[in-house]
């Protein structure tokens, strides 16, 4: 029996060389992706996963794991198996975004043209 400095461990009467059967698949359940909202009005942000047998317990573990400090207003859990993601090796599908400058407000320079127009008008009137 283990004689420990921790009285709780001594009381548990544990054999020192107690081999156990190995854990089998799903012993540690499936995983859920956790999304955390800090304050009302903000986005939920992905913070990590928990292992849990069902969504209710996943929320319980998510609270213990991801809201021990700071502010939390809301948590979501989603089974990992329900997430569909793009592939990293396909990330060139995003590579042309920066070329699409017509989607960028900063590329519209109307002030310059209005100024030029006004200068021309002033010249014709004088």
């Amino acid at each position: 029996m283990i004689e420990s400095l921790d009285p709780r461990i001594t009381r548990a009467n544990i054999e020192a060389d107690s081999a156990i059967d190995p854990l089998t698949p799903l012993d540690q359940f499936q995983t859920f992706e956790v999304f955390h909202q800090k304050k009302r009005g903000q986005q939920h942000v992905h913070v990590g996963i928990v292992h849990a047998p069902n969504p209710e317990m996943a929320l319980l573990y998510a609270k213990e794991q991801y809201s021990r400090r700071g502010q939390t207003s809301n948590l979501w859990v989603v089974p990992t198996s329900c997430v569909t993601a793009t592939e990293y090796f396909d990330d060139d599908i995003f590579s042309t975004t920066e070329e699409k400058i017509y989607r960028d407000p900063g590329t519209y320079k109307v002030i310059d043209r209005i100024k030029a127009y006004k200068e021309r008008k002033a010249q014709t009137q004088s």
């Binding site: 698949p25 012993d27 359940f29 089974p79």
Partner: peptide, 20 residues
């Protein structure tokens, strides 16, 4: 804890490797 974990494991549990 093993019997507890086994008791609450749902019938349709399926493991997926976490994404990130």
């Amino acid at each position: 804890g093993r019997w507890v974990r086994r008791a609450i494991l749902g019938d349709n549990a399926k493991y997926t490797v976490p994404l990130a």
